[in-house]
Simulated assay, not measured.
Amino acid sequence: MAVESIQVDATSIRHPLFAQIHRAMRLGRCIRVLYRSLSNPEAHERLIRLHSLIQAGPRWHIRAYCSKAEAFCDLNLGRISAASASEDAGLPRLDRDVDWHRIVAVRLVPHRDLSAEQVRMVREEYMGGTAATVFNVRAPIAKYLIQSFRAAIDPERERAPEHLLMVYQPEELPAVADIRRL
């Protein structure tokens, strides 16, 4: 009997860089990183205090307070090209990350455009025959959960059959859970 998995890790990280990041996280220290983002693709320096690793499908992220963003945010680990120790700059620690400590309920239901027979099949496949499946997750992780299920946030634009599921009452989720910010 063969078992195949498409669970892949697409984040390319050099071991010495990961070791620096992991050490800073474990010790609660600040580090300076060279980071690239879609909004700023040129490598630029950021001072961060990180507290958690997040696996989101094929990519890895770190949850950190970033002095540039002046907020807690998720940084794609594969977009960090260098890291160096930094003096403690008084950046907030994990206990100040209000969104991280906030648990939200993400309720997934069959997409409203499915036929009655398709709804029944999707309920059996994803929900054990019930009307919905609910995941209680940290608010910043909700967007990754929604993405992993390819659940529609806007069922008018995100149609079945490409989206078998949709988020029930997405307007009730906090802004940090917005998948459109990925």
Rank of each mutant, 00 (worst) to 15 (best):
R32E: 12
N40E: 15
N76M: 10
A82P: 01
H101C: 06
H111K: 00
R123N: 05
A43M: 10
P170K: 12
D74F: 02
A69F: 04
M121F: 12
T11W: 03
R181N: 15
V167P: 06
P110E: 10
S37M: 10
M1F: 11
T130L: 07
Y65E: 06
A175P: 09
D74T: 03
N76P: 02
L91Q: 06
V98R: 11
A19R: 12
P174M: 13
E42S: 11
H51G: 12
G57S: 09
C30M: 03
L108W: 07
Q147C: 05
A24F: 04
D88C: 00
V167H: 12
V167N: 10
K143R: 15
I62M: 08
T11M: 05
D113V: 00
T130Y: 10
S86L: 04
E124A: 00
A139L: 09
I54R: 05
H51I: 12
E45V: 14
V104I: 07
V119W: 02
Q7W: 01
P170L: 13
P174G: 12
P41H: 11
R112C: 04
R79A: 08
A105N: 11
Y65M: 08
V122K: 04
R138H: 13
A24K: 02
R138K: 14
S81M: 07
V134D: 13
I54M: 08
E42M: 11
G129Y: 06
M121D: 14
V167G: 12
E158S: 09
K143I: 02
F18H: 01
I13T: 07
A85G: 07
F18R: 00
A10V: 05
P58R: 01
H163M: 04
P58H: 02
S37Q: 09
I103E: 13
V98F: 13
M1N: 09
L27A: 09
C66M: 08
A175N: 13
C73N: 12
L164I: 03
R63F: 02
R29Y: 07
A24L: 01
F135N: 01
V3C: 00
L34D: 14
K143Y: 07
S148P: 02
I31A: 07
R123L: 04
A160N: 07
V119Y: 01
P16G: 01
V33R: 04
R120L: 09
G90F: 05
L50R: 05
I141D: 02
M127I: 05
S5V: 00
R157F: 10
R180V: 13
S148E: 11
R157E: 13
R112I: 00
P174R: 14
I103K: 15
L75G: 03
Y126F: 14
N76A: 11
K68R: 14
Q147F: 11
L50M: 15
A139Y: 03
S67E: 15
A175H: 15
A83Q: 06
Q147M: 11
L165A: 08
Y168E: 15
E125D: 06
D99H: 08
D99C: 02
I103A: 12
V137C: 08
S52E: 14
I153W: 14
A2K: 12
A71P: 03
I62F: 01
R63M: 06
Q169T: 11
S81N: 08
A83Y: 03
G78M: 07
E125T: 03
A142C: 06
S5F: 04
S115Y: 02
Q55M: 08
R49Q: 13
I54H: 03
D178C: 10
L47V: 04
E124D: 09
I103L: 12
